[in-house]
Design a protein around this nucleic acid. Structure first.
Length: 230
DNA sequence: CCCTGATTCGC
DNA sequence: GCGAATCAGG
């Protein structure tokens, strides 16, 4: 697997979106193991694992017998017999550089799930007069993208308590005429740069309807998923 | 069984 | 550094 800057960016993005490792792997056409392995090396924030924390458990208890960590899948472990304990220690300091992490959560991270979810596109702004016709270009882009994003197995619905307290008392002010470029409204969340670095930001362009990315990045994001049916 | 993510370790 | 093999919980 060639981890280009872009594939890594996509991995980070998908990972931060909460997609399962297997799902990410499918989208990147790699195995989930590759995804997990790379994610670890990148120091991406671990997600709640279904299994218990092994490290916490084996903290000590060592004492007498070394816990049979591996079952010697095939060969290997020869070292175990001979090496005894010369490398049982050495370095344990975790990188911990990921602390700054906080991958995203910048200002506004549109809660989106898998790019699959049809997700009714909420009216972005006021329907001033913006019928928001999809330009041919956009349509083309969408059509071109094979994005068969039918959720094979939705990871987790994760109920989002839509707070959106839009009670009565609508704005009496005629907000109709004004835009809010800097505030609300969907924006392309394609990551630019590395999270944690000063220059990091999201694309911010107007995304395709129902998509987290703008036309430009959606084309990149969905370009290689054409047949994940194996 | 399926799913999930984590870890180890040969390459 | 990479990822298959493996482990392990739901």
């Amino acid at each position: 697997m060639e981890w280009t800057d872009e594939t890594i960016a996509r991995l980070r993005d998908l990972w931060s979106q909460g997609l399962s490792t297997a799902e990410i792997g499918r989208q990147l056409s790699i195995t989930k193991n590759a995804v997990v392995g790379k994610a670890h090396r990148l120091g991406l924030p671990p997600r709640p694992s279904p299994i218990r924390n092994r490290k916490a458990a084996d903290g000590e208890a060592g004492t007498t017998e070394a816990a049979p960590r591996r079952k010697s899948p095939s060969k290997a472990k020869v070292v175990e017999a001979a090496g005894s304990d010369l490398f049982t220690d050495g370095k344990e300091a975790a990188p911990a550089k990921a602390a700054s992490g906080v991958v995203e959560k910048t200002a506004e991270t549109p809660a989106r799930k898998a790019p699959s979810a049809p997700e009714a596109p909420k009216a972005p702004v006021q329907p001033v007069a913006a019928a928001r016709v999809v330009s041919p270009v956009q349509k083309e882009a969408v059509a071109a993208a094979p994005h068969r994003e039918a959720p094979i197995t939705p990871p987790k619905p994760e109920p989002r308590v839509a707070p959106a307290p839009r009670p009565a008392v609508p704005p009496r002010f005629s907000t109709a005429g004004i835009d809010r470029p800097t505030r609300r409204g969907p924006s392309c969340c394609w990551p630019i740069g590395d999270p944690g670095t000063p220059g990091f930001h999201f694309c911010g362009a107007t995304p395709l309807p129902g998509k987290p990315y703008c036309a430009e990045h959606a084309a990149i994001a969905y370009v290689k998923i054409r047949d994940r049916r194996d």
